[in-house]
Write a protein that binds this DNA or RNA. Structure first.
Lengths: 293, 293
DNA sequence: AGAGGTTACGGGCAGCGTAAGGATC
DNA sequence: GATCCTTACGCTGCCCGTAACCTCT
């Protein structure tokens, strides 16, 4: 019995199949089979009922699972207590929304590299919606996204809040006073993807105005900014991420009728036995986010 | 980090040297060095201070030791709870006094073989005195001896009590009435080794009688019995172990002045993290001893 | 037929034991 | 010089990944 086998047991139980556990643990499915097979032989007990599509824990398997989780938790505590952070090893899958990439993610990566040089990061830049799915499906370990994620196994902590401003190219003829909603919709609105919080907020804001409303949705923040700089439309963006464009004059903010919501970002991760690093990354992210508002 | 390394850590801490731990764990000393070296590298922390003759735990080492003991204890509990006893594996070193060998040890061995066929026993038949030393020195894991062993780390449980009787060959001219002490010492007394409880009891009993007292001490019960059968002397023995000789008439008991003590046997073992089997053997021994009085 | 677990098999690496080296009392 | 830990080195055995096989839905 080794920790690797116990970890394998835990992930099969969580994900419901040998194959999924293999994928999660970066190994082959036969290897997972072998680990469980050895464990079963060592205990002289069947741990999983292989019935058709889905495997299910036996009674003994459930008992073993409890011990496995406690053992992994204790090992994690040991590592956290006595191990030199520089010696920590492992890979964590980090999901990030593009907004964070444009703000303090580089600072975090630098700090992570200092504090935990042995830890490998696998970056996954995606929308908050997709990241939420990936998080609950255990395809990533931790995510910085527009949260919180409402799921029993997911822990959320607030990272930062960015207010939205209307932004446009200086070439667009906008008045100095606040723009009326009807006037606003003279231009296409370029914004975050469908079903995202900012997208929905914009939809609600301009609902009932002129029927010619066009909303361009883009999952790429770089594209939104580029299209706005090119004068294709206006967009609600956090000024925080377009510091360069505002400074160089290629974009400017303007006032408009109605209230744009604040974007709230959280760090969210699944509580998982024996995972010290994820929590360490979350803690560091909270700190870095507060240091680079 | 694996359980084997943690176990190695624990035993170095207990025994005070890599070499002793290697011996105890049935492996080579360089192997023990390597295990600790790997553990230290993984944690990025020095666990032992190698200063001259004796190694000492560092502060981090002491913390690690605590976790190691808890982890091993938990693994043991897991094995005890869910594992099929038939699948248990391992070797335990069992020290036994000869008296027990002659009474219920065979029954115990049979029962052990039924309940834990995967467990290997290493039998060490010796005197209670030597077994006590071996037990405190961790050269054996568990012992059945004239106890209890008074040592902080040793647990004792009573096994059985055998009264002593005076025994002699029928060829010796003994009166039917109780023999006086002075008359008793006409023959050599053949008994347990020097410093053993029965030996001391006999010495105290016949102290102050005729100066010609001869006590033959033998560490071999078989030899004591044989010499007594041959009429070389008389001996205080538990009738329980000479059933054959009494039945065949080659030995008989007789009454004598004074009280011979009872022989009390205990099962004694060091409390050790992660050792399920030792406790299982102890429990079974208590049961078997009570079933074969 | 496709998804998923098992079996078979060859290759790589970790861990072992032997033997030699070095430090401390 | 004795004792004990470390380093060096060749070897074995375990574990892994690929691929073929089997079994359910």
């Amino acid at each position: 019995m080794d920790f690797r086998s116990l970890e394998t047991l835990v992930w099969i139980a969580r994900l419901g199949s040998f194959r999924a556990a293999a994928k999660h643990l970066y190994t082959s499915q036969p290897s997972v089979s072998a680990r469980i097979s050895n464990l079963e032989e060592e205990l002289g007990v069947r741990l999983f009922e292989r019935a058709g599509r889905r495997v299910a824990l036996t009674a003994k398997g459930r008992d073993t699972l409890e011990y496995a989780e406690r053992l992994l938790e204790m090992r994690s505590e040991l590592l956290h207590t006595v191990a030199d952070p520089h010696a920590m090893q492992g890979t964590i899958r980090l999901g990030v929304v593009e907004t964070i990439v444009y703000t303090w993610l580089p600072h975090l990566l630098e700090r992570l590299n200092e504090a935990y040089p042995g830890v490998t990061l696998e970056l996954d830049v995606d929308s908050s919606l997709n990241l939420t799915d990936k998080l609950t499906g255990h395809d990533i370990d931790i995510a910085f996204l527009m949260g919180p994620v409402n799921h029993p196994d997911i822990v959320n902590a607030e990272l930062c809040r960015y207010p939205l401003s209307w932004v446009a190219s200086p070439r667009l003829p906008l008045p100095p006073e606040p723009v009326h909603l009807d006037a606003l919709t003279r231009w296409p609105i370029i914004t975050y993807p469908r079903l995202s919080k900012p997208h929905i907020a914009v939809q609600q804001l301009v609902r009932g105005t002129s029927p010619g409303l066009r909303i361009h949705a883009s999952s790429s923040l770089a594209t939104i900014i580029r299209m706005t700089v090119d004068g294709i439309g206006i967009s609600p963006l956090p000024p925080r991420i377009i510091g360069n464009e505002l400074a160089s004059g290629s974009l400017r903010t303007f006032e408009a009728e109605g209230v744009l919501p604040e974007l709230r970002f959280t760090v969210s991760y699944a509580i998982s036995p024996g995972d010290t690093i994820t929590r360490a990354v979350a803690d560091l992210a909270v700190r870095v986010a507060s240091e680079h508002p």
